[in-house]
């Protein structure tokens, strides 16, 4: 484990990714203290609407005169919450399904995997839009839409890994020693495939945030006045190019956090999963 951290620490791009993620996470946690106008999540000041960045409103104001910087900080909370909960739920569904389907053979296993194929057959974003649209705009529904559409990716991954792991000597040994199937799956197979899951989860975070922002952009995210980043960009369209700051800063925030997760995910993959190592890393 220590070796993993050391290798990761040597990779500059992974460290940059980690730093970006930490910045956003801290911004989210410390939003009430870091924001200059904490009330602006719900309070408007129409007299100063669409002000460019200035000493009082560091990143300018939006169409209702609310401080964009403060709303971005609170928006980080929503983004992080959506991504973490959605991914967690997707992992909690996908990993057990993949493990069981990969370990056992037969009709039950086929049924589980064909079930996940059904979800994979439809483009993930289209399915998420359909679910979010049907259920109505709210944070809970966005999380549900993302979890429901994301779990098959983990199921597929874990299924393939379990299948190849099942014939390894240590698994056979465990079975020969009389371990129960659950014990074999959870204590023997799962730890050995955990690196793939971690890599997939980290990279998946970026994608999830992007999809959540897309849903917000389309008006399917949490309703106003929630300072969701995607919706802020959607609102800003009508005021472009005059109010460039209105779209630029939320866009930059999404870029930073997605970039952070992708860089960290790539770094983790190099360290944990040598088979998929980046060609350019030369290690």
């Amino acid at each position: 484990m220590r070796q993993v951290f050391r290798k990761l620490a040597e990779d500059r791009s992974s460290m940059l990714g980690l730093a970006l993620i930490l910045i956003v996470v801290f911004a989210a946690i410390l939003a009430p203290w870091l924001s200059t106008h904490p009330g602006d999540v719900t309070e408007f000041h129409t007299a100063i609407r669409l002000s460019p960045p200035n000493a009082d409103n560091w990143l300018g104001t939006d169409r209702m005169g609310a401080d964009i910087y403060s709303r971005l900080l609170y928006g980080a909370r929503i983004t992080i919450t959506i991504a973490v909960v959605a991914i967690l739920v997707a992992v909690l569904i996908g990993v057990p399904v993949g493990l069981v389907a990969g370990y056992y053979e037969g009709l039950g296993s086929d049924l589980l995997m064909r079930g996940s194929d059904v979800f994979l057959a439809v483009p993930q974003i289209v399915l998420a839009i359909a679910i979010a649209q049907t259920l109505g705009p709210s944070i809970e529904n966005v999380i549900l839409a993302l979890s429901v559409t994301y779990w098959p990716f983990w199921a597929r991954l874990v299924y393939a890994e379990t299948r190849s792991c099942k014939n390894e000597t240590f698994v056979e040994a465990a079975i020969a020693l009389g371990c129960s199937p659950w014990r074999v799956m959870v204590l023997h197979i799962l730890p050995s495939i955990s690196s793939s899951i971690i890599v997939r989860t980290t990279i998946g975070m970026g994608g999830t945030i992007l999809t959540a922002a897309t849903l917000g952009f389309l008006g399917l995210g949490p309703p106003p006045p929630t300072p969701e980043w995607g919706r802020t960009i959607a609102e800003s369209r009508e005021f472009l190019p005059m109010a460039w700051w209105y779209a630029a800063f939320p866009g930059l925030a999404i870029f930073i956090v997605v970039m952070g997760f992708n860089l960290l995910g790539d770094g983790l993959r190099d360290v944990l999963d040598p088979r998929l190592r980046r060609a350019s890393s030369g290690k």
């Binding site: 719900t42 309070e43 169409r63 006045p225």
Partner: peptide, 22 residues
């Protein structure tokens, strides 16, 4: 949409809970 947001702002100050729907 903007007018709905503006009213919501006033409603919050007056103590009325509201939800916007576009």
């Amino acid at each position: 949409i903007q007018a709905a947001s503006l009213l919501q702002n006033g409603l919050t100050r007056a103590g009325i809970q509201s939800r916007l729907l576009n």
